Computed example of a mutant assay.
Amino acid sequence: MATLQREREEEEEEIKEKIKEKEKDIAELEAEAEKLVEAITEETEKIKEKVKIKKQSKVKSAQVVQKPITKPKKIITKEKARIKEITEEDIIKNLIQTYKWAYKENLYPWMYFIPEKKKDKDSWEEEVDSWASEWSNFLFDWCKEFLQHIVDKFDLHTKRPFNALEDREKSLEIIMDYLAKDSKLAKWLNDEKTRLRVYWQSLEKWGDILYDWAFLVGEERLTLLDLREMGADISKGFESLPAKDLRDIIEILVENKRASWIDKRSFKFNFDI
């Protein structure tokens, strides 16, 4: 009986020892779990802090007021101020370098009358064609040098060297008509053939000049009236362009997607920047 009692006590002691060991293991596991929880909590706090900093950074960025972009200050210097004033005498000298007979009717009298008719019609027509070609080239360059877009036949009667021509009216009509053969160079403005529009610079080229000037000085919107008033600043001869040509120049820019009409009188440039 005593032996049985002892065995039971030993079993209970053994069970108690096992329970203590289990409790010890559980305590160790709980300690490790607490450490793990602390580590996770600490890492979570770090992540939250980083997120908070990023949010604050975004808010600050959104609150930054962008400085308004200002157009560059216009610095427009008229060509007249930059370039030495060209006199009529200077222009004549330039023309004479190309056309030695110009302004020298006494030295080259045959250039100042229409070639006389000959029995050989073909030969005569060739002479007239050569004479008209030379004079039409001179007229073209004369218009360019004097910045003339439109010439009037009766006005040319009084201008040197045209006033030295024999039978001026007929001679000028032949010369002007010859130039008008090429519509890219000139065209008659009336049926009476008294007024001629001379394109010593194409409308496409004028469009390029206007576009480049506007980009350089920072002009974005203009009216047709502005073009007239600012013409001398844009380029020599621009201020005297016919009104119809100004509109045609803008139309060319619009077709090339370089400008857009705002209304019938104003437009804006489309700068690719």
Score class of each variant (00 low, 15 high):
residue 147 L to S: 14
residue 253 L to Y: 02
residue 22 K to C: 11
residue 94 N to V: 09
residue 72 P to H: 00
residue 187 K to V: 01
residue 135 W to Y: 12
residue 161 P to T: 07
residue 71 K to C: 13
residue 127 E to S: 10
residue 256 N to E: 06
residue 26 I to R: 05
residue 240 S to L: 08
residue 183 S to M: 11
residue 166 E to G: 10
residue 217 V to E: 13
residue 180 A to F: 02
residue 157 H to F: 14
residue 261 W to M: 05
residue 264 K to G: 07
residue 250 I to M: 01
residue 156 L to C: 03
residue 38 E to S: 09
residue 70 T to Q: 11
residue 74 K to I: 00
residue 155 D to P: 08
residue 74 K to E: 11
residue 79 E to P: 15
residue 69 I to K: 15
residue 13 E to I: 09
residue 259 A to D: 03
residue 33 A to H: 06
residue 9 E to K: 15
residue 12 E to M: 12
residue 140 F to N: 03
residue 104 K to G: 08
residue 185 L to W: 00
residue 4 L to W: 11
residue 65 V to R: 04
residue 190 N to S: 06
residue 174 I to C: 04
residue 6 R to P: 02
residue 126 E to V: 13
residue 252 I to G: 03
residue 160 R to M: 13
residue 223 T to A: 08
residue 213 W to C: 02
residue 256 N to W: 03
residue 106 N to V: 13
residue 142 W to I: 03
residue 207 G to L: 00
residue 196 L to Q: 02
residue 198 V to G: 06
residue 19 I to G: 06
residue 126 E to P: 10
residue 262 I to K: 07
residue 214 A to R: 00
residue 169 E to C: 12
residue 142 W to L: 05
residue 223 T to C: 07
residue 86 I to W: 03
residue 219 E to C: 09
residue 260 S to D: 12
residue 63 Q to I: 15
residue 212 D to I: 11
residue 129 D to F: 12
residue 257 K to P: 03
residue 246 L to W: 08
residue 265 R to A: 12
residue 205 K to P: 09
residue 264 K to H: 09
residue 242 P to N: 00
residue 165 L to Q: 01
residue 11 E to R: 14
residue 63 Q to V: 15
residue 172 L to E: 01
residue 120 D to E: 09
residue 239 E to F: 10
residue 210 L to I: 01
residue 162 F to K: 00
residue 218 G to C: 01
residue 244 K to W: 13
residue 2 A to V: 14
residue 59 V to C: 12
residue 158 T to D: 04
residue 191 D to M: 11
residue 23 E to R: 14
residue 14 E to S: 06
residue 95 L to A: 00
residue 214 A to G: 06
residue 119 K to F: 04
residue 22 K to N: 14
residue 50 K to C: 06
residue 124 W to N: 06
residue 237 G to M: 05
residue 89 E to M: 12
residue 269 F to V: 08
residue 134 E to T: 05
residue 219 E to F: 07
residue 205 K to W: 02
residue 128 V to M: 01
residue 146 F to E: 02
residue 50 K to G: 11
residue 145 E to I: 07
residue 31 A to T: 10
residue 200 W to L: 01
residue 16 K to L: 04
residue 54 K to V: 09
residue 78 K to W: 13
residue 188 W to D: 00
residue 223 T to E: 09
residue 112 Y to E: 00
residue 254 V to N: 00
residue 193 K to V: 07
residue 16 K to A: 13
residue 58 K to D: 14
residue 102 A to N: 05
residue 205 K to G: 08
residue 5 Q to P: 14
residue 140 F to L: 06
residue 57 S to T: 05
residue 248 D to R: 03
residue 125 E to V: 10
residue 256 N to K: 13
